[in-house]
Design a protein around this nucleic acid. Sequence first.
DNA 1: TACAGCATGTAACTTGTTACATGATTCG
DNA 2: CGAATCATGTAACAAGTTACATGCTGTA
Lengths: 178, 178
Amino acid sequence: MNSQDVILGMLMKRSYSGYDIKLSLETLFSYFFDASFGTIYPTLAKMEKEGLISKESVQQEGKPNKNIYTVTDLGRQEFLKFMGSKLSGDAGRSDLLVRLQFGEYVEVHLVEEWFNEAIRLTEEQLAKLHADFEKYDSKMNACQRISIEYGLAMYTFKAEQLKKSLSQLKERTGEKQL
Amino acid sequence: MNSQDVILGMLMKRSYSGYDIKLSLETLFSYFFDASFGTIYPTLAKMEKEGLISKESVQQEGKPNKNIYTVTDLGRQEFLKFMGSKLSGDAGRSDLLVRLQFGEYVEVHLVEEWFNEAIRLTEEQLAKLHADFEKYDSKMNACQRISIEYGLAMYTFKAEQLKKSLSQLKERTGEKQL
DNA sequence: TACAGCATGTAACTTGTTACATGATTCG
DNA sequence: CGAATCATGTAACAAGTTACATGCTGTA
């Protein structure tokens, strides 16, 4: 799964400019995917060259011109090829878990700070997801709703579990110092 | 957090060859980090050039020679710099969640297959983590134990939640077809 | 006037993957 | 004899990041 697959998926619904794609990724999509302009524009150019999408220049009043991209039949084929491909498991590279493995080399205080930061980040994402869910709830289909509900459940549990782990850390390292 | 940081962390405990690093990553570390030889060897070479680690060639009987790497003072400094740096949140790019957003364009049957595959992968990782935990439990420090317990809790919950989401999918799409 | 939003794009760089190349020994 | 394990490394490629460059309009 890469940026091309996500862009193709978005174009299945409607046409987008590169700028629009970025905006949409930042709102509803942000909790499971993101891409920068430096990825989006070169990807769109490559996709057009390969005939997966077609470009239309649109003049705008008081705003710069837009390049609106539309998926082609070949693009739809490519999209379905992705949807039928083998699912790849979540990479699961976690900065917190890596640092935790090496926690013995730093002060407990620093480890606690990592946990607090991880909790803060998780609750931030959870809040954003809640807000998005309320905003777009009525426009979502069954699959999308299940996806968001799954995300909410995972973030909620993650925040709780991080707090529990932090408590355990305090207990276990506290005992040692007594 | 990248391969260099992880390698430095491992070298804080003891010296390693590139091959040893790969083996260790495959066993205890696999649930939160992995790296291929194509990453490990060039990274080690780069780190030696920068003076973060030192190389020692070791002759072996009946086996090829080994390059054993040891962390230097500069390397230890660099490691602590990483441990003190800002924690980066989990990227959270999820193939399943991306596909779910576009689930309306494929048969429900295919979506169910994704869930089943995701459940299978999660339970596989959970089983491996359980096995590793039992094997290395006695050798782990407080931070490492908390890390593994956190991993176990997350994978367990994830597997359950995926099953719940699959049930919801069947309910909700079943209703539609009646 | 300066900044924010709209809009597109490039260049240099980082990081990592897969596949290939080499070659010895041990086990079945 | 062939496969697996030990052991190191390179080359081609893929994917993405950050920073820079451009330029217009509307607002504070």
